[in-house]
Amino acid sequence: MSPAPDTYFALALIGPAILALFSFCFLGLWAFSGTRNYILLFSAACFIYSLAAIVQIALWPADFGQNTILSALLYTTSVVMISNGVLQRAGQQMSPFVMIVIFTTIMLPIWYFFYIEPSLIARIYILNFGYGFVFIYVCVRLVGLALGPFIDRFLYWVLVAFAFHFFIRTTATIDPELGNAPGSFGRSVFWLVLQVSLAIFGAIMALTLLAATVADLLGDMERDRDTDLLTRLLNRRGFERIAGSHMSRAAGRQVSLISCDIDHFKSLNDTYGHGAGDAVLKEFGALLLNTMRGEDVIGRIGGEEFAILLTGADVEGARQFAERVRALLENTHFESVPDTRVVTASFGIAQYRPPEPLRKLLARADVALYAAKKAGRNRCFVAGQTQ
């Protein structure tokens, strides 16, 4: 027995209604973030999918061939957009060549199996298997997510399940007796089951993407809160949080801390203006970023005060690092400061003594820093050693 018209439309509209709602949610998150453009791709993908489903439900345009081509084009566009959005979130891109291949290998066979050799079954397999392979391609590109944070791992395995559901659902539910006339498919129980299953899997995918997006935005907020706006290094709060975490996970590895202070910075500000002082701070921050190793933690913890936590470095390794930075700074030309004014810094170094807290480690490094300044500045002193 065929479903009543009201039941048909109610069931058929579940998928597009849910994804339209997600589209507006993603749009709001994109407006809030202002920078993460992949969120806009998620929004557009959900909206275009909803539009494709409505095109099929409303049979607009009424010509069945035009309706088939238009809906397939919209569905494919939605799949490409959501795939590219997931890749962009991970810092990757879907190349124009790949997009052309996807559209060509899906749309040309759809056209062929409607106008040249009509076969509804062939078109169903082409669309569903085609989308399954697109998502498998994305999963292969993003295999590294399986080793990332929880939300990335969860998203990855949802993507894997979403990819394979196209193959499993299609082969398990396809009715080989479906004909090519509009009424034989568009109003069939099979099509309704297809729409409901897509609504469920689509909602799971959209919820996962929404959760990942919210996690990204919360991470952005935390990074902004922990970042010094001038130098783009960690501020004191961020440095203490991340350095403390590194110290607690050192697990027997040697850890050293360098405290450094730009020499005569107040005089520099008073003589050349705060703009010049800010430029020096900014360029020194860039110098530190270019010198640091991948696991080092660097922060601006005061006006002209900086701290560097080196994991896997003993006090001699830290001293060599500080000496390298000191020499680079001494030989750096700052456009905001005349060549006759050489900008230097003093450094104090201390080795971590478990289980001392970060504040005590920093205090010992500061003692060495003050000794370096007292000895004439532009030098590196190690805590507890005779200089």
Rank of each mutant, 00 (worst) to 15 (best):
L328Y: 01
N378C: 06
E356M: 03
S184E: 15
L229Y: 07
R319K: 14
V143T: 11
A279I: 01
L268T: 08
H274V: 02
L217W: 06
S188W: 03
S2Y: 09
T291V: 03
K374W: 00
M94Y: 04
G186T: 13
L369P: 00
A53Q: 13
T76I: 07
V342K: 14
P96E: 09
G132T: 04
G144F: 09
L268E: 02
V98E: 09
Y272Q: 08
W60C: 09
F114E: 11
V337Q: 05
L218R: 14
L209W: 01
K282T: 02
D296R: 01
V98H: 11
K282A: 12
V193K: 10
F185W: 06
E240K: 02
H246C: 07
L358C: 00
L41E: 09
L192K: 03
L218E: 14
T332M: 12
C46V: 06
R326D: 01
V143H: 13
E222A: 10
S78M: 09
G179W: 10
L11T: 04
A371Q: 11
L127P: 00
I258Q: 02
M107E: 12
D270T: 03
G28A: 12
G219N: 14
P355D: 14
E240N: 07
S71M: 10
R237T: 04
Q88W: 07
I100A: 15
R187K: 13
G317A: 13
A365I: 00
A45Y: 10
G15V: 00
P16G: 06
Q320T: 11
L127M: 14
F42N: 06
R364M: 03
I57V: 11
C25F: 07
R237I: 03
I100L: 14
L234T: 00
D220T: 10
F114N: 11
V297C: 04
A279C: 05
I262K: 05
I124F: 04
